[in-house]
């Protein structure tokens, strides 16, 4: 069974951490992953940087720009990760935009992911209908879960459709925003969390965008299976480097 699905069966709320590969330094990727696993995180999203990250706020934009300046590419990331399964067993997801994957070749990219032991992909600008028509078979052939996003504006009908195409979990974007934009959840988010919980979807939900501390993590996971932290983690490594990752994780849960 895919490591993501195994993890989702555990009887606990899951913390997933996003970081941008190649940031703060080009060769930090493996150390960050190892330190995150040691600190008790449940899942990791490895950000493949893109020149034009439309869905991201300033923190992830800046880290992406820096990572590209540092020389990060798809090929280099795969090289860095080639022995990663010798040292970690945590579920690993690559998150990025569709164009770099398209240029690498969707099948070649998926094949490489399988060789390394990547468990899934999150490509926010690969639409669910295009995925279902053109790429689902390829992803499944290489044992990869493709995770889709829903937002407070997504209709129930579309959520049901996304749920039907999904495997693993559904990435629940907490509010209408780019990453890192809001701090704290209000009534609108609570209503949204309740609405989704009441839909009793087939796939568990993991909340992302706007989670930065224990309070927002607790709120987000009251009903959802887990939550994802990105911008707040990147701010932490920007300020403190990559050796004190457990300090950050300990403040969350």
């Amino acid at each position: 069974m895919n490591r993501i699905n195994q993890k989702l069966r555990e009887n606990k709320k899951l913390l997933s951490i996003y970081f941008t590969a190649g940031y703060p330094n080009i060769n930090d990727t493996v150390t960050i992953i190892q330190n995150l696993e040691k600190s008790g995180v449940d899942m990791i999203e490895i950000g493949l940087p893109f020149s034009d990250p439309l869905a991201d706020g300033p923190t992830i934009q800046d880290s992406s720009t820096k990572a590209l300046q540092n020389g990060m590419t798809s090929e280099l990331l795969f090289q860095q990760l080639k022995d990663i399964r010798k040292t970690v067993s945590i579920p690993l997801i690559i998150m990025g935009y569709f164009n770099p994957v398209l240029q690498y070749g969707v099948e070649a990219f998926c094949k490489k992911c399988q060789e390394i032991g990547i468990d899934g992909l999150i490509l926010p600008d690969l639409p669910v209908d295009v995925y279902a028509e053109q790429y689902k078979d390829t992803f499944e052939k290489y044992g990869l879960i493709n995770v889709f996003l829903i937002t407070p504006q997504t209709s129930d009908e579309r959520i049901r459709y996304i749920d039907s195409v999904s495997d693993g979990f559904i990435y629940m974007v907490s509010s209408a925003s780019t990453t890192g934009a809001k701090s704290g959840f209000g009534n609108a988010q609570e209503d949204y969390f309740n609405r989704i919980a009441n839909m009793k979807l087939n796939n568990p939900q993991v909340v992302g965008f706007g989670i930065s501390n224990n309070e927002t993590f607790t709120q987000a996971t009251r009903q959802a299976k887990g939550a994802i932290i990105g911008s707040a983690f990147i701010k932490h490594v920007t300020a403190n480097g990559i050796d004190t990752i457990d300090d950050f994780v300990n403040t969350i849960f």
């Binding site: 893109f50 020149s51 034009d52 439309l54 590209l68 590419t73 798809s74 090929e75 935009y97 569709f98 164009n99 770099p100 994957v101 398209l102 240029q103 690498y104 600008d125």
Partner: peptide
Amino acid sequence: KEGIIHGCKTLLMQTNDGQI
């Protein structure tokens, strides 16, 4: 080369790695 920019699949100037 063919790729994705600002929400559409079209010809665009990019690196081999797909950076615009």
